[in-house]
């Protein structure tokens, strides 16, 4: 069943702050096998001009996707989460996510399309720090495959 077009443009309330920890960044960098010193060593990060260790470019997805969950699981929208796959992902950075950041995410439904029986949902997540300054915008395309189709 096609999703309700009236949800296009809907913005969800900002999330509670996510506090970015040095050890969480290190854990993430370890998990992707990335030994860049700017993700681990505050001195190495400062040598590059950053106030503390920075996170790898895709780290913030864990934060924005949690926020997108409010959209994906919105019972009024009625998306069948069991059939959802990740279609596209894009980030635009004002600055890197940095240890000590307290990040809030504001999610907006940018578009809803129906293509070949699939529901295609574009969600924009605007990420701001505790001072209200923009850090990064994440665009996530979710595709709910039509019932009866395999991956």
């Amino acid at each position: 069943m096609a999703l309700d077009q009236s949800f296009v443009g809907r913005t969800y309330p900002p999330t509670a702050p996510y506090e970015v920890g040095r050890e969480k960044i290190r854990e993430f960098a370890d998990a992707v096998g990335d030994d860049h010193p700017a993700y681990r060593d505050p001195r190495a990060a400062r040598a590059l001009g950053h106030p503390d260790v920075i996170a790898p470019p895709t780290f913030v997805f864990s934060v924005t996707f949690r926020a997108a969950g409010d959209v994906i699981h919105d019972p009024q929208l009625g998306l069948d989460y069991g059939r959802v796959v990740h279609g596209d992902q894009r980030f635009r950075y004002t600055r890197p996510v940095t240890a000590g950041d307290r990040l809030t995410v504001t999610s907006t439904i940018e578009s809803i399309k129906s293509m070949a029986g699939n529901d295609v949902l574009d969600i924009r997540g605007e990420v701001h720090d505790a001072e209200g300054a923009h850090v990064v915008t994440a665009w996530t395309k979710m595709v709910a495959r039509a019932a009866g189709k395999d991956a």
Partner: peptide, 20 residues
């Protein structure tokens, strides 16, 4: 990582997108 290792500072990446 191919980009961040090449450019040295991961913060030099100002935009990044893919399709799966």
């Amino acid at each position: 990582r191919v980009v961040t290792d090449w450019v040295g500072d991961p913060a030099a990446v100002v935009e990044y997108g893919v399709r799966f």
